[in-house]
Structure formats: structure tokens, C-alpha cells
Design a protein around this nucleic acid. Structure first.
Lengths: 346, 346
DNA sequence: CTGAAAGCGCTAACAG
DNA sequence: CTGTTAGCGCTTTCAG
């Protein structure tokens, strides 16, 4: 907070540069003075001023992380991965929430640039409003990577799950369990590429089995739904009142699935006997719900870890490769879809 | 990324300081040149180098936030509050997870100091290992505040919930519902002051009604329990096998409560008829569980907001007041404890 | 192996 | 109202 290189130098009667070198383990300083300097630094409670260092070295060793918000478990799992690896590599991470607003996202990114972050990991807002900004960053070779979702209009590195495959897996499982009238709750961001992929998986699975019933609940009324859980709850209640009631629900994420589950229970339906429910993400709590929730597992923290690693090496290297990585999802079967008994389920 | 004050100055044929002043809305510059400068800056894509600025001004406008981890919903709600207010005040927040390890916590704090954060919001690890560090910071007048929990050995500002009152409320409610053999699942950090307060609320409630049955499950075996949910699940299964089976569970947080709920359901018990369960925190999902969970509401994001506000004003002001703030918890009754019907419940 | 000096980009005193 | 100058704390040539 107070003590600087100059202080140490003075107290030891050596020059500032020697102190700097010693502290950085520069071989051009004698072992003996290095020891002396380090001891003195330790003793005086010296903490290197990274700000000053950065001004010279042009590296802050800080990463930016931007996501929609920290209210649901999924982005936090990614953040946990990012933070852990960053920390292990001597980096810090500075966070921002875009609240799904492109303007806010833009502000955050420029704020981060002003703070001279070495790179950014972002789960982008689905909008074309910042495409120019992203392209500008890319053109300058700034290390940036999308996680969880990406913008097809931007040729930027990204790491997501193979959402198509995950959805296919999930819906095929429902069919395998004898469900026939399967509805898809696409959530409040149905226009997102990754969500579309899941919807595509849904329809393809139905097609493979020649099932004609299909119902995709999109995001017409985003305003009415403050949270995903409420979305699932609300629209499921509606669906259950409709003439052609579904016998299974494929929810685009676990929060929506939870809301749907709640609605079914309230309506007096038995899960999985009367209606099956499967989610997406496989968040930790799924396994502990009173009716445990089947889901498609996404490697969330792995996503964060991989993203952090990529950004850090991109920041270090003189140049970087653009990667487009799809992690493999897996089907996790639990009570909410298992009506045939485990032995028959696959 | 590239363009500096000097560039703008050169292109406009004015001095660097004029540009700086204009950009900072210093009244000592003519309206006209201010406009010209701002236009040029905008045009050239200037982004102020906060690093360089900080080196002069000694203010980064960055806050540090440290918590155990981002895996459970509770700390994330606090972070959301911190981030939102910070952002609104033009601050950024840099995060770190201590993973309940005092050493890591110490490293994070010094890293943050090196990065010259203006203040730190921390949910401290329960340990006396860093007491000296905290006292050292306090002695230097560094803005730091504890959230969610505090260390009684350190005279540092803190914001928590009135945990005693919350627990009292919850357990009295259980008694009111006719439960008599109430167990307390204290979790893996029973030695934490705030947890102790909840335990005190538990015992006092029992005392008030002359109930002799009490059982406090502490943290003997932290190693076996990777997560809180598992803790709740695991120990509840044990309890249900014991001779003097409880008829209600007071869990120290909602994750433990969820684990307990799951265990009860698996054991074939009806909730709330056979056994009542109440948690603590009132996380968003509680209301949507298939059996919705009663809980003690903690104002989580308010906690984050208040903490961020305090730190920011402490960082700005020449001096600050130490505050010890207890937010008021409220009882939220849901299905998991309501066996008498709503009308009789209070 | 060590020291002197320059400079990163910005702001703030001090002149004019 | 505007320009000149110095300096924040550090690293890094360049000399010795």
C-alpha cells in the first residue's frame, strides 16, 4: 500500500533497478543480493504495484468475464471454472453482467478495455447490435472468446456444448420411454443460435420416429416472465389446460424444467407416470429434487476452464488461433422421465 | 487500445492537458474546444487508459469481492447486488473464491491490494489465521467490509442478517405447527459465528416451549461432504434410521434443507405430514420445488448493494465509520412445514 | 553484476 | 481559457 521499490532500494543502499531485478528473479543479479532484497521486501511488507507495472509491461494479467447475470446456477458454474484457472495462472478476473442488454454489454466491454484486461470471456447477448464491436476487437487481434453461446455473424472463437446432439439425446430418451406428445419449452431466448440447435434436435428426434405432434413454446412474451423458472411454470400451466395436452416436456434448461415440474405437480399429475420432464444443463440440484430431474449434462466448469486457458494463452502468445469447440453433452436419466424402469431404459 | 491523449492533442493542435481537461468536463476549458475534443475522441475511438490514470490519481474504481465459491446460489445473489451497484457507480468488480481456505483468501487479498482495488467486500473464511491481515488493513484505513458473516475478533464493518432472530422465527413456526422433535442441521461450518447464532435461536425457541428434545448435527466430518446438499441428504438418512427419529428439521441453509427433503422423500415419509422441513436463505428455487420449501428469507442482494455502497463511499471519503448492520430476516411459509393449513399457521 | 535514466499515459500544479 | 512540466511506481535499455 505504501512501500515501494525506492523504499527498499534506499534501506539497502542499492539501486531501484537492482531491487526490481532481484524481485523478478532476473539471473543478472547475484544470489546474495537477491536474497537480501527479498528478505527486506518481505519484512517491509512490500506488495508490487501491478498498476505501475502494467503501465510499462502492457499486461495486467486480468481477464474480463461477462454474462447475463449471476442469478442462475449455470453461468456461475462457468464463472467458477474461469476464476479457478485464472487464479491458478496468476490472473484475476473482473466480472460484469449484461442483463441481456446489448448497450450494457458494450459499456462493459469498453470499460474492460479501459481497464486494460488481457482478454475477455463473454457469454454474448443475442443481438446483432455489437457485431461491429466484436469484429473491431477481432481485427485488432484482441483475445476474446464466447462461451455457452456464440454469434454466427462474428468469426470469433467459441466454446459451447453440442446442443443439437444434447437435445436429440434427450428427446429420443423421452420417446424411448413411451412418451408421444412432447412439447418443447424454448424459453425467453428462442432466437439464440444455441437454443435453435436444441429445437432442431427436438424436431429431428420426433421426425426420426414419425411423430407428428410438436409444440414449441417460444419467447413471445418475455416481459411477463421475469425468470426462467416462472416461464416454465406459467406456460406449463397453460399447456395443461389445452385440449391436446402433452405427455412430456423437453425444457431448454433446468430452471424452466423445474417450473414445469412444479406446475405439473400442482395440477395433480404424477411425474413421470402421467407426464415426463427433462431439462438441459444438469445443474447440481437436479439430483436432489423431491422428484429428481433428468437432464442433459453440459460440462459447465470445463467450459470455463477451457475458455480461460484459451484467453490466457492467446494473451501471451504473439498470435492466436480461432477455435470453435463443441463439448460433448451426456444424457442423465433420473426419476422425472423414467417410467419403464432402469433396465428397459436403454 | 492504441489512441492516446497525445494523438488527439496532435490531431487538434492543442495540448495534452487541454484534451484531458476537456474529456473530464473541467470547466476551465471553453465549451467550444470541449466539443471539438470530444468529437475527435469519439471519432478516433479513444478509450481512456484507466491504468495510467490510476497511477496518478490513486483510484482504480475497482472493488474486490471474495467469497467461498460460486457454486451455490446464495453468494451469487450477493455478488449480483455488489456488481449491479458497483456498475451503476462506475466501478468494476474483481472476484476471487477462497474455497474456504485462509491461505487462498490471504493470497487473493494481497493480489487485490497489488491491483490497487479501492476496497474489498469479503465473506471471510471462518478462521483466525487472517485476523492479523484484517487488522493491518483496518489500521491503514483501507475500506473493507464483511458480508454474510463476520469475525468477532476483528473490529471490521459488516453486514449480515439477524441470524438469531431468523432461526427463532423458523423454529417457533415449526413448534406452532405441532412439531416437537426438531433437529438442527448445522452444516459444515458450525464453528462460524453466524451459524452459532442460528443454533442459539434454535435452542432458545425450544426452551421457550419447554421442549427437551434437541439434536444438533455439527460438522464433524467435513471431508465426507463435498456439498451442502449432500450433507443434508446424508445426515438426514442417518437420522431417520436412529431410534429417536425427529419429526422436523431446521436446516442452516436451503441447500441442506433440499438434501434433507430428498432424503425424507426417499425414505417414504410425507412432507409436511410426517416430517416438517424449513431452510434458511430463501433462495429463488424454494418456491418451485415439487414440495415447496419453507425458509427464512435473507435480503441477499440488499446485502450486496449495501456493502458495495459502503465500500464505495468509504473509498471516496477521507475517512469512514465502522458499521455493524443486521438486516431483518422474515419467515416464508410454504408447503414443507404447513400441516395445519394456512389459516391456523399464525 | 549493478546503476542511471527514460518512459508507459495520464492528471494536476503552476504559469501565462 | 490554455500550455508546460513534473511525476505516479515500475521495468528496461544502455553504460559501466
Amino acid at each position: 500500500m505504501r512501500v515501494t521499490l525506492a523504499d527498499i532500494a534506499r534501506s539497502l543502499g542499492v539501486s531501484e533497478s537492482t531491487v526490481s531485478r532481484a524481485l523478478n528473479d532476473n539471473p543478472r543479479v547475484s544470489r546474495q543480493t537477491r536474497m537480501r532484497v527479498k528478505a527486506a521486501a518481505e519484512e517491509m511488507g512490500y506488495i508490487r504495484d501491478e498498476i505501475a507495472k502494467c503501465l510499462r509491461v502492457r499486461q495486467t494479467e486480468v481477464l474480463g468475464f461477462i454474462t447475463g447475470g449471476f442469478t442462475s446456477s449455470y453461468p456461475n458454474d462457468i464463472l467458477q471454472g474461469v476464476e479457478t484457472t485464472a487464479s491458478r495462472m496468476g490472473y484475476s478476473v473482473i466480472v460484469g453482467t449484461s442483463r441481456a442488454d446489448p448497450q450494457v454489454e458494450r459499456r462493459l466491454i469498453t470499460a474492460f478495455l479501459g481497464r486494460k484486461v488481457d482478454g475477455i470471456v463473454v457469454s454474448p447477448v443475442v443481438s446483432d447490435e455489437n457485431v461491429d464491436l466484436y469484429n473491431w476487437l477481432l481485427a485488432r487481434g484482441f483475445p476474446i472468446i464466447f462461451v455457452d453461446r456464440h454469434l454466427p455473424e462474428v468469426k470469433c472463437s467459441y466454446i459451447t456444448t453440442d446442443n443439437y446432439k444434447g437435445a436429440l439425446l434427450g428427446v429420443l430418451h423421452l420417446i424411448d420411454q413411451g412418451y408421444r406428445r412432447i412439447v418443447c419449452l424454448a424459453g425467453t431466448e428462442a432466437h439464440c443460435f444455441e437454443v435453435q440447435e436444441r429445437v432442431r434436435g427436438y424436431t429431428d428426434a420426433l421426425d426420426q420416429h414419425g411423430l407428428s405432434y410438436r409444440y414449441i413454446q417460444g419467447d413471445q412474451s418475455i416481459d411477463e416472465c421475469p425468470t426462467h423458472v416462472f416461464y416454465g411454470y406459467h406456460y406449463t400451466l397453460n399447456l395443461l389446460k389445452s385440449a391436446e395436452m402433452p405427455d412430456a416436456i423437453f425444457a431448454i434448461n433446468d430452471e424452466i424444467a423445474l417450473g414445469a415440474l412444479r406446475a405439473c405437480v400442482e395440477a395433480g399429475l404424477r411425474v413421470p407416470e402421467d407426464i415426463g420432464i427433462i431439462g438441459f444443463d444438469n445443474v447440481m440440484l437436479d439430483a436432489y429434487l423431491p422428484i429428481s430431474l433428468s437432464s442433459i449434462h453440459q460440462p459447465k466448469s470445463e467450459m470455463g476452464i477451457a475458455a480461460a486457458n484459451w484467453v490466457i494463452s492467446a494473451a501471451k502468445g504473439p498470435h492466436y488461433d480461432v477455435i470453435e469447440q463443441l463439448l460433448t453433452p451426456t444424457l442423465v436419466v433420473r426419476e422425472s422421465t423414467l417410467r419403464k424402469g432402469l433396465n428397459q431404459s436403454r
